[in-house]
Design a protein around this nucleic acid. Structure first.
Lengths: 192, 192
DNA sequence: TCGATTGTCTAGCGGTGCTAGGATCGGCTC
DNA sequence: GAGCCGATCCTAGCACCGCTAGACAATCGA
């Protein structure tokens, strides 16, 4: 049995190595540079090994997305925990979200822009994704206002943040006023 | 001279054909299916002909984006023209924007998600793109509220719409509550 | 009618995601 | 300890991608 356990351990380790390497490469040079050949070379295995762990490139992106979702949830909770009052929490949440998107663009893309083959907004949505949404909901539910379903409010607020994050990074919005845009968004959307 | 003019006319016609065919193919099967080989086959010329009109695939995407921007601007102005009062105009604008994004997903992607090699939010931004933003500004400037720069307000509102459009289409947001989300967005952001 | 120029095509480069099939290595049985 | 056998991994290759060099043909002006 011990032999089999060791093999499984090694296999799991190699899988983590694949995901970590894909992420690293994506952050360094963008997802376009993450080819199966380059990835295989970096982990010092041949290409087919990748396919013994994942169905294809899409699933690797999905794995990076799940990892990122857990980190984002932690980052959001960390930011809101040290803020006083609902209004301050929402501002901290928005800033933390945009900071995460800016600081981990490849991970953010894996989560929300690319197709990682993951289910969203459904029952069989993977737990890390549900939890990241829950982290948003925890602070945003407080300021949804009367008669507005917290989930619906969270969706709208999230969409606005997502729009700001993607349009800014794609050069569609000038980066200078980023701070003022967040202020305006929180001012108007949150009911304190 | 007449010969040269005829040639230029034919050339311009073929360029329109390329752009129209690329757009059609993208709407039918997605941008991934728009390969230079398939595109060349559809216009019944060989691949290199594409490169005598455009530097590469990116520029073709850019051309589709410009065409789409003009159409979107017209659609937005058409929708707001028949609405009474600032509040109704903003609602109509938001609906028209999301309808355009849903009805022309490939064009929308060319404009705002893919890299078409176009400059945004700068002086040398192509006129159609500036005009599409202007169409947003015309209705949104009315409801920016005191002390808020209309341009900044428009950017935030636009980002929210963009977030809703992209997250919904990518399956990140359930499509059922789309209408309610727009209502909430207009309610909170617009100062009537 | 002939030469030059313009236009178009064939063929091919290096790259992509992915896979079939053979070699090699390890653990298990005798 | 020897030899079998199955798991594991790699080499080689498929069809496709964006893009381009260079040969060829059609068309124009003299």
């Amino acid at each position: 049995m011990s032999v089999q356990e060791r093999k499984e351990r090694e296999r799991a380790g190699r899988e983590r190595l694949i995901v970590a390497t894909a992420r690293e490469l994506a952050e360094q040079q963008g997802w376009d540079a993450v080819t199966t050949r380059r990835l295989a070379e970096r982990i010092e295995y041949s290409q087919p090994v990748l396919y013994s762990h994942f169905r294809g490139k899409r699933e690797i992106i999905g794995a990076v997305a799940l990892e990122g979702a857990a980190e984002m949830a932690a980052a959001l909770r960390g930011a809101t925990a040290v803020a006083d009052g609902p209004r301050a929490r929402v501002t901290a949440l928005a800033r933390a979200y945009l900071d995460f998107a800016e600081g981990n663009p490849a991970v953010y893309d894996a989560m929300f822009r690319l197709d990682g083959g993951l289910a969203f907004a459904r029952e069989d949505t993977p737990e890390p994704l549900k939890d990241a949404f829950a982290a948003l909901l925890e602070s945003l539910g407080e300021v949804a206002g009367d008669g507005v379903r917290p989930g619906l409010f969270t969706e709208v607020f999230w969409a606005a943040l997502h729009g700001l994050a993607t349009l800014t990074r794609a050069g569609r919005l000038p980066p200078e006023d980023a701070g003022r845009r967040v202020e305006l968004l929180v001012d108007r959307l949150a009911v304190v």
